[in-house]
């Protein structure tokens, strides 16, 4: 079994008494996968649980590369090779662009091909803005920074939680292009999205989440052809509907 496979079995998660993930089971990480679903279906909760982040309480089993990671501290999960681009980007407002990249552990930033220079090569725009306080960056630039700092930990699997949220359509297009480039360069993504267009453009394999469970496993091509499934699971009126 490949060491980048994330084996999620029977995971329940709670906010107080709200049961958000309901014995969720799936396996991701072998290749780039998209998780899509409507608002409030537990997608972000799943991301946070995978990364060991608060506030949900979770039980069950999450194995990464064969080892149990549920209950491990967040920094340990990251060091094992999971990286995270969070919803809302969560940029540190007290740091400059450059400091975001310099603050990461040398050990992580030199264990693979992603170095500070490699991130600046990927995003020349960030290199131009390196001395600028990160709070002053535009939404698109902040998203680049959030992806850049996650890449810098040289992950085996990169989790992205709604990266397109709050970005202008042209920026989303660029983001989609970057994601496709990353995938073609060998980075494996777990893309959690509401934006069907972006998810299908980036990931071939798709999981659809409904009420804290995986309701359907499909492929991008199949889902795009299946108007009924789009309507049923995502509430989307298919673009080509007659």
């Amino acid at each position: 079994m490949s060491d980048q496979v994330l084996e999620i079995s029977g995971v329940d998660a709670f906010y107080g008494s709200a049961h958000v993930l309901q014995s969720l089971s799936c396996s991701v990480g072998e290749r780039t996968t998209g998780i899509i679903g409507r608002n409030g279906m537990g997608k972000s909760t799943l991301c946070n649980v995978l990364m060991g982040l608060p506030p949900a309480k979770a039980r069950g089993s999450i194995r990464f590369g064969g080892e149990e990671i549920l209950g491990r501290p967040s920094y340990d999960i990251c060091r094992r090779g999971l990286a995270f681009v969070p919803q809302g980007r969560r940029i540190f407002s007290s740091l400059t662009t450059d400091e975001h990249l310099r603050m990461l552990s040398r050990k992580l930033a030199t264990r693979g091909k992603w170095t500070v220079d490699a991130v600046y090569d990927l995003y020349p725009r960030l290199a131009e803005r390196r001395k600028v306080g990160a709070a002053q960056l535009s939404g698109g630039e902040q998203q680049m920074l959030a992806i850049g700092r996650a890449l810098l930990t040289n992950p085996k699997l990169l989790i992205m939680d709604e990266p397109s949220e709050g970005l202008a359509p042209t920026i989303v297009e660029q983001l989609t292009e970057t994601c496709r480039t990353l995938v073609s360069e060998g980075v494996t993504l777990l893309l959690v999205e509401q934006n069907l267009g972006m998810a299908t453009a980036v990931a071939d394999r798709l999981l659809i989440m409904v009420h804290g469970e995986v309701a359907l496993e499909t492929t991008s091509a199949e889902l795009l052809a299946d108007d009924d499934a789009q309507r049923r699971f995502l509430g989307v009126e298919p673009a080509g509907a007659h």
């Binding site: 608060p54 501290p73 967040s74 920094y75 999960i77 990251c78 995270f84 540190f92 990461l104 552990s105």
Partner: peptide
């Protein structure tokens, strides 16, 4: 600024 996010970047 955000201790949980800092931790998710591999920092104790």
């Amino acid at each position: 600024d955000d201790s949980a996010m800092t931790s998710a970047l591999g920092i104790n």
